[in-house]
């Protein structure tokens, strides 16, 4: 156990750290660069009408590119840690009413995901939210015993998992020929962003679902 003295010292240190942070934030001068205005000024060239999507996939596209890489790495890490097991176990089937509900909800969730992807251009939404809904549908199907946990991913699944990152990378590489990484030509920007987001939605949905379904295939208790 942690001695009382250490416990008190850590809590006091954390409290004073929080206090110092708050005081520093109160003293913070107004920002010299007004980013919302800069975003607003360049919205016309971004290819989409929603500022967050424009920042995410156009102005700061390389952040998103690397983020998808990080997600893929995390999935590889989970695969490496859990080991490859050939026969995934299915969860015990749920009651018929729950199974029925899951079967009804899954296609609706796919519809919502595609809507979110499309809506991302003009209002809150986008590939990440769409991918999260897809992953939630997979988890729902898994928990009701319809979809078994993942074993070793086959070639088709591997390609789908990496497709979002690869499409993004291909677009970035192709645009590099024009001079800068991910500097879309304004006329095609909307099209390219939709292409990237569609790839991202599928891959993100599968990666997020995979993080759950790979961890779920072994209970962790058995040797």
């Amino acid at each position: 156990m942690i001695p009382l003295l250490k416990r008190v010292a850590v809590i006091l240190a954390a409290a004073s750290f929080a206090g110092a942070l708050v005081v520093a934030m109160l003293d913070l001068p107004a920002p010299t660069v007004h980013l919302p205005a800069a975003v607003e000024a360049n919205m016309a060239a971004s290819g989409v009408a929603h500022p967050v999507t424009a920042v995410l996939l156009n102005f700061r596209g390389y952040d998103t590119l690397l983020e998808v890489g990080v997600l893929l790495l995390a999935l590889l890490g989970v695969l490496a840690v859990t080991g490859v097991r050939a026969a995934p176990r299915a969860v015990a089937p749920a009651e018929p009413a729950k199974r029925m509900l899951a079967r009804l909800l899954a296609p609706l969730m796919m519809l919502v995901a595609v809507y979110l992807l499309w809506a991302g251009a003009i209002q809150p939404g986008g590939a990440f939210q769409a991918g999260a809904v897809l992953a939630a549908a997979a988890v729902l199907l898994h928990l009701t015993g319809i979809l078994p946990g993942w074993g070793a991913p086959g070639p088709r699944l591997r390609v789908s998992l990496a497709a979002g990152f690869l499409i993004f990378l291909a677009v970035a590489g192709a645009l590099l020929a024009r001079g800068a990484l991910l500097a879309y030509p304004p006329a095609q920007a909307g099209m390219l962003i939709l292409l990237i987001e569609a790839g991202l939605m599928v891959s993100l949905g599968l990666i997020l679902a995979g993080l759950f379904l790979l961890l779920s295939r072994d209970s962790g208790d058995e040797a």
């Binding site: 952040d63 983020e67 997600l71």
Partner: peptide
């Protein structure tokens, strides 16, 4: 919108 997009990125990385 800039920090909001950054945070959206961060949330996904945190999940992973």
């Amino acid at each position: 919108p800039v920090p909001q997009a950054m945070v959206l990125t961060g949330i996904v990385v945190a999940v992973a």
